[in-house]
Design a protein around this nucleic acid. Structure first.
Lengths: 256, 256
DNA sequence: AAACAATAACGTACGGTGTACGGGATTGGG
DNA sequence: CCCAATCCCGTACACCGTACGTTATTGTTT
């Protein structure tokens, strides 16, 4: 059980934080902390213990201050999450030259997003709609659009293709992260878990009623025990999605 | 801000609930409630007010009983969610005959899942890995596999294709639901929201630095204002994904 | 140097969460 | 009739985000 936040606190306050629009006050005691420090601590907590464990008290503890001190620097938890989001997007590499044309570029983008979700699983739980328009959110959007510019797609199609890739990676990463968290939380591998379920399942599972599920489930279950199973699933789906985009791009290239 | 649950409480207790393995007790006062009643009330609350608002106290209130009374029927909130999940899957139509071959069947599955997510947005927030093996979860898996059986795919490929479709629909639905919730919570349409952001954005947005984002963002923003924008995005992506699967199926049919 | 204004730090408190525990009310069986 | 079994649920605990108000610290002004 974890907590989710739809990002986006007060947009005005978030923007001020994201673009550093605060002049250093002239009077009063020296600040003991900085916003980036708090954001870094919060990201550490979320990475290590999940979004559910990310509380203001926990972040404050991490920094050795009282919980309420954080409110001196940050309007609230929602705005903190906005800045966390933009900050981790800043970690992504965005190389200008990638081999393999548009397909190579989209592949690269997908992989970069994949590793980002693996590194910061809590990203899967913060809503992506109307994101805080921080510098890194913008840079990311521009970079991804550049991958499909000049292919003969309409502007709306370009946006749709990017959304498709992002959506696919999001879904695939969610599967992988869910699997990893289930394993960590229960302390059981999938194999062990299914073995434990077997006696219960046998009581209710009717092989004649679910013949394909029985056959495929067994095969898939075995495949999922492989160490790199989520990566394989990701690669499989990515190939299909890119093939599908290829059909569109080729059509736009040949015909109108 | 909403709360997420990784489903899956104690699997043994969940299975007992899902398959009705409790013999009616002979002594004691007549139960005022039933498990299906509680589940229905919980689904109503989650549908109407979101997963964040789904609390045991809230469900109890809905039913006109004390909060702790629910624990007579259900071991805890996690198990309740397991049953909620299986229950809503039971609402899905699963017609045997669908026109259009495997592609028609997959399309149908995707649309059915899409409407399910739209009807019960909280489904997007409950983890899908190691789901409670209720009757409807099983029926759904069997049904979806049947759509791609006998196409020359390996068992693992069949599972991967189903996972790809499900993952895609999940991502697309998430986008649509996020958009709808943002609109409902803020009371502002996307258009109004962007209009409100404009003065802030102009201060920091450098058109020369983000030329493509400026152009495409404007076009996409306009398209997103259309009433059925999320459906269009869903249809666009679905076509690409199915095209990609087509490439695989055709290869398996011709070659090996 | 002293006084003042502004800022930082943070203790306390409120209403919310899931649920452990235990007591009171109700019912059927012996 | 009595008692065991069962339902109902009030109270309590440890968490959460954060409003509010007090105290400590600092730079500027007198």
């Amino acid at each position: 059980m974890t907590t989710e936040y739809s990002g986006s606190g007060d947009p005005k306050r978030s923007m001020e934080l994201l673009w550093g629009m605060q002049e250093r006050p002239r009077r009063g005691p020296k600040p003991r902390l900085t916003v980036p420090q708090i954001v870094r601590a919060a990201i550490e907590v979320a990475d290590a213990e999940g979004l559910a464990a990310l509380s203001m008290r926990r972040v404050a503890e991490q920094l050795g201050v009282g919980a309420m001190s954080l409110y001196t620097y940050v309007p609230g938890k929602a705005e903190l999450l906005d800045v966390m989001l933009d900050t981790v997007l800043g970690e992504q590499a965005r190389p200008e030259e990638v081999a393999g044309g548009w397909r190579g570029r989209l592949e690269r983008i997908a992989r970069e997003n994949w590793t980002l979700y693996r590194r910061h699983p809590w990203l899967l739980q913060v809503a992506a709609h109307r994101p805080p328009m921080g510098p890194n959110v913008m840079a990311k959007y521009e970079y991804e659009l550049r991958a499909v510019d000049g292919l003969g797609l309409t502007d709306v199609e370009m946006d749709s293709v990017i959304a498709l890739i992002s959506g696919y990676v999001h879904g695939a990463a969610r599967g992988a992260v869910d699997a990893a968290q289930a394993e960590r939380q229960t302390g059981m591998s999938d194999e062990q878990w299914w073995a434990e379920q077997a006696p219960l399942l046998e009581k209710v599972f009717d092989v004649e009623r679910y013949p394909i599920a029985a056959r495929v489930g067994a095969a898939a279950g075995e495949a999922h025990n492989a160490p790199a199973a989520p990566e394989h699933a990701f690669e499989f789906g990515l190939r299909r999605v890119l093939d599908g985009i290829d059909v569109l791009v080729s059509a736009r290239r040949d015909g109108s």
